[in-house]
Design a protein around this nucleic acid. Sequence first.
DNA 1: CACGAGACCTGTTCGC
DNA 2: TGCGAACAGGTCTCGT
Length: 275
Amino acid sequence: MPELPEVETLAQMLKHGHEGHPPLPGRRVVGVSLRWPRHVAEPSVPAFRRRIQGQTIHDVSRRGKYFVFPLDEGTLLIHLKMSGDLRITQRHARRDRFEHTILHLDGDWDLRFSDSRKFGKLYLLNDPDRLLGVLGPEPLARDFTPAVLAQRLAGHDRPLKPLLLDQTFVAGIGNIYADEALHRAHLHPLRRSRSLATPDVRALWRGIRAALRQGIRHNGASIDWVYRGGEFQNHFRVYQRAGEGCPVCGTPIVRTVIGQRSSHFCPECQPEPEP
DNA sequence: CACGAGACCTGTTCGC
DNA sequence: TGCGAACAGGTCTCGT
């Protein structure tokens, strides 16, 4: 589910409170329930239990697709991977079968990590930069300029689609927003990074930012049962729209597989690169 | 450095 | 109706 816009939306909801649930900052962890211990990536499960106990959560933010929760000592990072979701519930609310990991909070609240595929991870780290530091730039930050993108593109000779999915290249883009950004930029997913002229780079820069911003404006995308609230899925131009008409030219959208991931594009607006 | 395959998991949907 | 195959928002590791 979660790419930058979904993580951003959820982080804001947790930070400020949502639908009667209190803001997370200021709450203290009074207990932990770990039904899927492999959710805890670091440190060991016993050390995690011990160290998180009694700590106050001071803030909620996002870096790439990670949630960042500064604590009294150290920082909790959570990555939702494919099917993860976070919600605040009352302690006694019915627990669904995917809520494998729960941080019990003071005031009889829970922070519940629901994750049907169990790919998600929690990290309790003294130095969160060990993970966050390897991420590429934040695509919506002021310092992510077309010149920065151009310079990074020139540093690789790779097809654009897998490059956009590489979190060390730019942080936060996933399969939905990569396809949506490339369509906006009129660039084929197999175009090579080094082959882009300056106008192409600008178009890609705009495409990335526009797709992500629009995603955030619609509170992210909710597909299937995962994630509630967002409705960006109603505004996809190409993602999961194979066979439907391109919103620009009406040509049927094509689906292919690139780097083991599905890719959706308009064969008319996003012409195939010369081999 | 680039790239593909396989792993990690489970749920839903599709085709026969 | 049943059943296996295909597919799903992500990333990591290994081998070429």
